[in-house]
Simulated assay, not measured.
Amino acid sequence: MRWDVWRDNSNDHCCGIDELYRDATAVEAHRGSRHCLACLARFPNGPNVPQ
């Protein structure tokens, strides 16, 4: 797995994380993890949509 954190140069209040996984099995394992589910619950419109 690799992840990159980036900042939106046009909006000081916006940042993102891009995640790269070994395969689809690793993606599904991550999506089912407690910390991922807790994070996604905080963003009901999706992680890339302004809340």
Results as ranks from 00 to 15, higher is better:
1 M>N: 12
1 M>G: 15
1 M>A: 10
1 M>H: 13
3 W>F: 08
3 W>K: 03
3 W>T: 00
4 D>I: 08
4 D>W: 07
7 R>I: 01
8 D>V: 00
8 D>H: 07
9 N>Y: 02
10 S>R: 11
10 S>T: 09
10 S>C: 07
11 N>M: 03
11 N>E: 11
12 D>F: 00
12 D>Q: 11
13 H>A: 10
13 H>K: 10
13 H>I: 02
14 C>D: 07
14 C>I: 03
14 C>W: 06
15 C>P: 00
16 G>A: 05
16 G>E: 02
18 D>S: 12
18 D>I: 04
22 R>F: 05
22 R>V: 14
22 R>E: 11
22 R>D: 14
23 D>G: 08
24 A>N: 09
24 A>I: 11
25 T>C: 05
25 T>N: 12
25 T>A: 15
25 T>Q: 14
27 V>G: 00
28 E>R: 13
28 E>N: 12
29 A>C: 06
30 H>S: 06
30 H>F: 08
32 G>H: 15
33 S>P: 02
34 R>C: 04
34 R>A: 09
35 H>R: 05
35 H>C: 03
35 H>K: 04
36 C>T: 15
36 C>I: 06
38 A>N: 13
38 A>E: 13
39 C>L: 10
39 C>P: 00
39 C>S: 15
40 L>T: 15
42 R>G: 14
42 R>E: 10
43 F>I: 02
43 F>E: 02
43 F>V: 03
46 G>F: 03
46 G>Q: 13
46 G>N: 09
47 P>I: 03
47 P>N: 09
48 N>R: 06
48 N>Y: 01
50 P>S: 07
50 P>M: 07
51 Q>I: 05
51 Q>H: 10
